[in-house]
Amino acid sequence: MSPVSMSPVADRRTPPLGGFNLTLLRIELRRLLRNRRTVVFTLLLPAGLALTLGGQSGWEQPVGEGNVGAYILISMAMYGAALTAASVGSMVALERSVGWSRQLRLTPLNPVAYILTKAVVALTMGALAIVTVNIIGKVQGKADMPVSVWVTAMVVTLFCTLTFAALGVFVGYVVPGENAMQILGPGLALLSFLGGLFIPLSQYAPVVRHLAYWTPMYGVSEITRAPLTHELPWYALVNAIAWFLVFIAGAAWRMSKDTARV
């Protein structure tokens, strides 16, 4: 046994950055990539959707700086990333329900650093989903848009996923345990239909379209496709920002409600 020489009580330090570090990120990511459910949501589902929907008739029609194929590709990347981020977000509540958050409260890890870690993990997994969908799209060869649009759309999509990470945290707290994804999966699909991610809103009846403007997927889907379409109604921007704030507030509210037995 090598004797450990520890600093005296008075000299003890606190960790930098509230405990945020790369070991945490590495272990968190490794856990997710080992998880069959996450891999299906992150890689297989969006890739499959991109393959099937990307080839529908009319893909070669022009849209903005590219074609319909590119339009669908961007939408599918958004869907995949949102699903992934929501799934990562819902794990926060799951970890809390098994007492892991309480365990972490017995370490110097700052709650803000914990949430930051989860956000970085959600973004990384979201990026993985986006890249996967885009590689599939590239291989399929139907999407056509300038490289700059391609890259810009991917980056914008990545930032929009944060909204759904917050939604995941929120829903995870409201619906305990592993059931959160059973709600988030179909729920996000419904929101995607309503928000014009799967079918353009112009094809809906006016009533549905006006309802759609108020749903959470509408704003982000317009924003992610803006680099391609060069169209961004002001209310889409307001929608995206408002829903982001609503989900962040909801998640923060549920988490703070829950401090009795952390």
């Binding site: 272990i27 490794r30 856990r31 998880n35």
Partner: peptide
């Protein structure tokens, strides 16, 4: 009871915790 994540390995759990302390 509780306080552990089932899908982490024993080593990962210790590594994760160790990374949070300054010493």
């Amino acid at each position: 009871t509780g306080g552990l994540l089932k899908d982490m390995t024993v080593r990962e759990t210790v590594e994760y915790t160790a990374s949070l302390f300054a010493d």
